[in-house]
Simulated assay, not measured.
Amino acid sequence: MPERENFGEYSKTFITAVPADLKSQEALFFDERIPKFADEAVYIYSFKQNRMIYASGWEEILGYRDDEINMLAIVNMSAPEFAHFSHELNDKALKFIHHKSKDLEKYSFTIELKKIHKNGTQVPISARVGVFSSENGKIESIIGRFQVNRSLIFGKVMRYAAYGPEKEKFEEELNKILFSYLAISNKEKEALELVAKGYSFKEIAHALKVSHSAIEKRIIPLYKRFNVKSLTHLVSFAYDNYILP
């Protein structure tokens, strides 16, 4: 079993290696009501119980039985090149949401990465993690969906997105903390796609219904993050690293 020290300092306070009891009334209830899709695994982890309370589809996706998979294993099965970024993202996203008290079930984040199958092979995954339930303004449980996406092509840049009532603040907070990584958010990618099509910052701002300065804040920091000297170089870098199609 992976060591606890391998993942984020904040997350490890809440994560255990206890799998779900799939014969419990709670798990059976979820099994009837949680939608299931092809090439997808689902989990529900309870912070209140400090354990997994539901799991489905894991043997088909990553080789672990549903009564075997646990939160510690899921967090630590990221491929080495994605591990540090994934751990930091989990940490900072969870910390951000923990400071909120309203509409918690509307918060989630996504990340594209590779996970290590139980047989040692790498599986391309589009993962989404969000708040499943809350009580008295505090997170009670989270839900994660791991979709196999073999069309993903990975370069040097990690791709992620944040969602929720305070999406802008959520993503800005993640951007500040993850700046040292080669990473790009959906918001930044959205603006960069229009740059690649030849739009000016003013035109992009109009198209996305934000201010000119908001577009500058999305694009200009990418110069330093990706070590590029111009917009042309930035767009070229984006294509070379499969950020843009």
Rank of each mutant, 00 (worst) to 15 (best):
F170I: 04
F170Q: 07
F170L: 08
F170C: 04
F170S: 00
E171L: 08
E171W: 00
E171F: 00
E172P: 06
E172F: 11
E173M: 09
E173K: 13
E173G: 14
E173Q: 14
E173I: 05
L174N: 05
L174P: 03
L174R: 06
N175R: 15
N175A: 01
K176P: 06
K176C: 10
I177L: 11
L178G: 09
L178D: 02
F179G: 02
F179S: 09
F179I: 07
F179D: 08
S180A: 06
S180C: 04
S180R: 15
S180V: 09
S180F: 12
S180K: 14
S180Q: 15
Y181I: 07
Y181T: 02
Y181A: 00
Y181P: 00
L182W: 13
L182F: 15
L182R: 14
L182T: 04
A183W: 00
A183V: 02
A183I: 03
A183T: 05
A183K: 04
A183R: 08
A183L: 01
I184S: 00
I184L: 05
I184T: 02
I184Q: 06
I184H: 13
I184F: 14
I184W: 14
I184E: 07
I184V: 14
S185C: 08
N186M: 10
N186S: 14
N186P: 01
N186W: 05
N186Q: 14
N186H: 14
K187M: 09
K187C: 01
K187F: 09
K187P: 02
K187H: 11
K187S: 10
E188W: 10
E188S: 03
E188V: 01
E188H: 12
E188I: 09
K189A: 00
K189N: 07
K189I: 06
K189C: 00
K189S: 02
K189Y: 10
K189P: 00
K189R: 15
E190Y: 12
E190R: 12
E190C: 03
E190K: 15
E190I: 05
E190S: 04
A191N: 04
A191R: 10
A191V: 04
A191C: 13
A191I: 03
L192H: 07
L192D: 01
L192Q: 08
E193G: 12
E193V: 10
E193K: 12
E193F: 01
L194V: 10
L194N: 11
A196K: 03
A196I: 04
A196T: 11
K197C: 02
K197D: 07
K197M: 08
K197S: 08
K197L: 10
K197E: 11
G198A: 09
G198M: 08
G198I: 09
G198P: 13
G198N: 06
G198Y: 07
G198T: 01
Y199T: 09
Y199F: 15
Y199D: 10
Y199I: 03
Y199R: 02
S200A: 00
S200T: 12
S200P: 11
S200Q: 05
S200K: 14
S200F: 06
F201E: 06
F201D: 07
F201P: 06
F201R: 13
F201G: 02
K202W: 01
K202V: 04
K202G: 01
K202N: 09
E203K: 15
E203N: 12
E203G: 01
I204D: 03
I204R: 06
I204W: 08
I204S: 00
I204N: 03
I204V: 07
A205R: 13
A205Q: 09
A205I: 07
A205D: 07
